[in-house]
Simulated scan of single mutants.
Amino acid sequence: MAAPILTTDRMLLVPLADRHLGLEIELDSDPEVLRFLFGRPRPADEVRRAHAERMELGRRVDGLGYWVAFGVDGGARGSRAPAAEEDGEFLGLMMLPPAHGPDQPDDPTVGELGYRFRRQVWRRGLATEASRRLLAHAFDTVGQSRVLAQTMAVNAGSRAVMAALGMRHTRTFYPSFEDPLPGADQGEVEYEMTAVEWRARNRPGDESR
C-alpha cells in the first residue's frame, strides 16, 4: 500500500513526489521555519539530498511516508480543502516515516510524526489538524503500534501541537552537536502515542476529543 492521498477539513495531503522538490526548497529557504532544526536556511543541494532520503524512507513501510499540504486562502479557519493539488496553494510538509533516528527503535510498527509549515500560515491550527489526520491513518489504516515525535525542549509551538494531539512527553535527552543551536542546553524532548491510547481517545461517540 503506497501512501494515499488524505484530506482534512482544510487541507489536501498529497504524497510527496519529485514534482514537489521546488516546494521543499522554498519551504527550507526560510530560516524561521528551520529555527529549531538547523538554525539557518538550507541550500538547494542540501534539500535535494533530503528529498531523496525522504523518498527512500517513504518506501520502507507501506502506507507511511511524507505528504505535501495544500489549501485555499492560506488554510484560513473556515476554508475548505481543495479538490485537487492544482486547485490549492502550498502550505507545508507533513511527515510520518518509520522511526529511523539513531536513538529510535528499529521497528516497522513505530512511526515518527513531523510537520513543517510556511511561516505565513502559522498559528492557524494547521499542524494540529494535519497531524491528527496522520495519526488516524497510522493507527486505523496502517496498523502502527506507536508514533513518536521529537523537538527541541524550547520549541513551545511544536510541543503545544503534540500536547493538543494527546501525545505524552516520555523523555528529555541531550544529543551532542558540533554546532548546537540556541537553547540546545535544555535538551530535546520526545512525545509518543500508542495505538491503545489513540483508540481510547477516539471511541465512537466520544465528543470530548
Rank of each mutant, 00 (worst) to 15 (best):
Q144G: 03
G111C: 09
D73Y: 06
D179E: 15
D73L: 10
R209H: 14
L181Q: 09
L6D: 08
M55L: 15
R118T: 04
P204A: 03
D9V: 10
A130P: 00
V142S: 12
F90P: 00
N202D: 07
Y66N: 05
P97D: 11
M11E: 11
D45N: 14
A17L: 03
M167T: 05
A50Q: 14
R146D: 01
E129T: 05
L6F: 08
G63R: 07
A81L: 07
P15F: 12
D103M: 13
F117N: 09
G111P: 01
E192Q: 14
A99P: 03
L126M: 09
A83T: 03
V189C: 11
A76Q: 10
E188I: 05
F117A: 10
M94T: 09
E207Q: 10
H169W: 03
R35D: 07
H137G: 06
P31G: 00
V68M: 14
Y66V: 01
E112Q: 11
W122S: 11
A138F: 13
L96Y: 13
L37H: 03
D107G: 10
G92K: 11
R42N: 07
G88F: 05
M162F: 14
F36I: 01
F173L: 11
L13E: 04
D9N: 06
Y191P: 00
L165H: 13
A83H: 01
G111A: 15
G39V: 05
E192S: 15
P97N: 12
A99T: 07
P82E: 01
M1F: 08
Q104Y: 04
P98R: 15
V47A: 06
V147H: 05
A81Y: 07
R159M: 13
A127W: 02
L23M: 13
F90I: 01
A3P: 01
G157T: 04
G111R: 08
A50D: 14
P97L: 13
A44K: 00
A200E: 14
G75P: 01
A156K: 14
T8P: 03
Y115G: 00
F90H: 08
G75I: 08
A164G: 15
D45M: 10
L23H: 13
Y191G: 00
V154D: 04
L113V: 12
D9G: 06
F38D: 06
D140C: 14
D206P: 07
D62Q: 14
L64E: 06
G187Y: 07
G183F: 02
R171I: 04
E112M: 09
S145E: 10
A160S: 15
L23S: 13
L6E: 08
D103V: 14
L23R: 13
A130C: 12
E188F: 09
A99M: 07
F90R: 03
G205V: 12
V161N: 09
N202P: 02
A184D: 15
F177Y: 15
